[in-house]
Design a binder for these strands. Structure first.
Length: 497
RNA sequence: GGUCCUGUGGCCGAGUGGCUAGGCAGUGCUCUGCAAAAGCAUCCACAGCGGUUCGAAUCCGCUCGGGACCUCCA
């Protein structure tokens, strides 16, 4: 019963029972970042959301293959034929190689994900590593009459696809609206219809550095192609979960879907998941709106909208307090509240470590008390099983924490709830906080500051010739791997060598 | 303009036909040398107007407000 996971499938718009295609294996593909600049907090929210989903699936015992790509080519600045590749543009701007751009921001992305305690994916493929596969897919699509070549570029023929399939079924769009809703963009002459999208872009006659040989021209692949190709390569022609931010639903995921269906004749994905946006004053956080926060700005507090710094785990907790499919509004007050809540939860772990059965406590467990504990533990699973509702899960964990604190203050005793329920409570709390929600204890202790206090005590004891105390301090510190050094210039400390 | 989402207490945010969400803040009390932490109690709510129902924050309609996508975005 506790394993009845239900997830909201964007394709059907309904909450569906999660049944993997080949249990216990689960294939999950998440659209990763385009590495042309720093990831901002909104980007982070999506990856943290999928980190929770990944962690929970693992916790349920599934063998998950989590693929998250790195987009390092093909993502155009806009949809026009003359649209520049984002990576190439940045490289030109900074006068470095495109691959230097890619390397720099990929490394930065990994560092940030690590700071937020997100588990690395099982496979992290890059678009440039799969040019051959992308060319093969384009050839297949041309063969099937779903793509056409113009001047060395190849476009997906949405109208031709529409004859047998339904373009727009994921994003809820009608093809007629898309066809009539044409926007005048420069240099779209090559495409037969504005809804058609690039599979291959010719770089002939341009100074594009990122180019590969193909049957059509020296050029580079279109953005939507990489996900189709890499998803298929590592997870198969049908896999369980495909996720990404809400803003990728159209056109990116719609195009991906069309490419897969066009090439293989059937849907590639059983459950589509979309995470919602992080907002600032009610508006979507995005690079183009200039309202985004970079992780390091948050950690340092160095941003005009920030009153003070916030730690990675505070921010993670803040994100967990909302559901992944809801927008989440960023504010100082909310972050401050999150910091306190987060620390309270962490203090619970500490309290829990020190809870033990008292000697001579052997009263019979109170049925009601035991049932309450079990109820709360069940609730944690129930909440996560309901489309990964982390906000509700946190609520239940705080209820559990209240019980833990009651034990701590002896308003409640372990014997009253019974050893079994106590063990379950302990295990549930730790597992949910650390493993499933992926929170960790952050030590912001300043060891130099602490040692100053100790050294003052030490100096005072020496002054008073209280050598017993001096010896105790020395040996206690030594057991922590720290040695004190009495020098003419004063007392110093060092790690034991 | 089209499509869709959304409006919950001082703040943030779950819930979704009947049962205390939770966190932060506030108030009172217990504990305490003073604090802090913790506990106990308490205050503050479902945008507005209609409708369905024994019962609606939850379903339906309208009005008003906010947002997303339709162009690059997680």
């Amino acid at each position: 019963m506790l394993k009845d996971l239900r997830i909201n499938n964007s394709l059907s718009g309904k909450k569906e029972l999660f049944e993997p295609i080949h249990a216990p294996f689960v294939g999950m593909y998440v659209c990763g970042p385009t590495v042309y600049s720093d990831v901002h907090l909104g980007n982070v929210r999506t990856f943290v959301s999928f980190d929770i989903i990944y962690r929970y699936l693992l916790h349920l015992g599934y063998k998950v293959r989590y693929v998250r790509n790195i987009t390092d080519v093909g993502h155009l600045v806009n949809d026009a034929d003359a649209g520049e590749d984002k990576i190439a543009k940045k490289a030109k701007l900074e006068n470095i190689e495109p691959m230097e751009v890619v390397q720099r921001y990929t490394q930065d992305f990994h560092r940030v994900m690590d700071q937020f305690n997100a588990l690395p994916p099982s496979i992290e493929p890059s678009a440039t590593g799969h040019i051959l596969e992308q060319i093969e897919l384009i050839e297949l699509l041309i063969e099937k009459g779903l793509a056409y070549e113009v001047n060395g570029s190849v476009y997906f023929d949405v109208k031709a696809y529409q004859k047998d399939h339904n373009y727009g079924k994921l994003s809820g769009r009608k093809i007629e609206d898309l066809l009539s809703n044409t926007r005048a963009l420069d240099g779209q002459d090559e495409k037969r219809e504005s809804v058609d999208f690039a599979l291959w872009k010719s770089a002939v006659g341009t100074d594009h550095i990122m180019r590969w040989k193909s049957p059509w021209s020296d050029g580079f692949p279109g953005w939507h192609l990489e996900c189709t190709v890499m998803g298929t390569k590592y997870l198969g022609k049908t896999f369980d979960i495909h996720g990404g931010g809400m803003d990728l639903k159209f056109p990116h995921h719609e195009c991906e879907l069309a490419q897969s269906v066009g090439a293989h004749g059937h849907d590639p994905v059983k459950y589509w998941l979309h995470t919602n946006m992080l907002t600032v004053n009610g508006q979507k956080m995005s690079k183009s709106l200039n309202n985004s926060f970079l992780p390091h700005e948050l950690f340092s507090g160095d941003h005009e909208l920030l009153e003070r710094p916030y730690s990675p785990m505070t921010v993670r907790f803040f994100m967990l307090q909302s559901h992944y499919a809801s927008t989440l509004d960023f504010s100082n007050d909310a972050l401050l509240a999150a910091q306190k809540g987060y620390r309270k939860l962490m203090n619970g772990l500490k309290t829990l470590r020190n809870l033990h059965v008292n000697e001579g406590e052997d009263a019979t467990p109170n049925e009601k008390a035991t049932a309450q504990i079990n109820q709360i533990c069940d609730n944690c699973y129930r909440a996560m099983n309901d489309d990964f509702n982390t906000a509700l899960t946190l609520g239940h964990l705080f209820n559990l924490l209240k019980k833990i604190n009651n034990l701590h203050t002896q308003n409640l005793t372990i014997s009253q709830i019974g050893q079994e329920a106590f063990d379950r409570m302990k295990h549930t709390y730790k597992t949910f906080v650390l493993e499933i929600l992926g929170l960790k204890e952050e030590s912001n202790l300043d060891i130099d500051g602490l040692m100053d206090i100790v050294i003052k005590e030490y100096a005072a004891a020496k002054e008073a010739k209280n050598y017993d105390k001096v010896d105790v301090l020395r040996s206690s510190l030594k057991s922590q791997g720290i040695v004190l050094k009495d020098m003419k210039s004063g007392i110093d400390w060092a790690y034991e060598e």
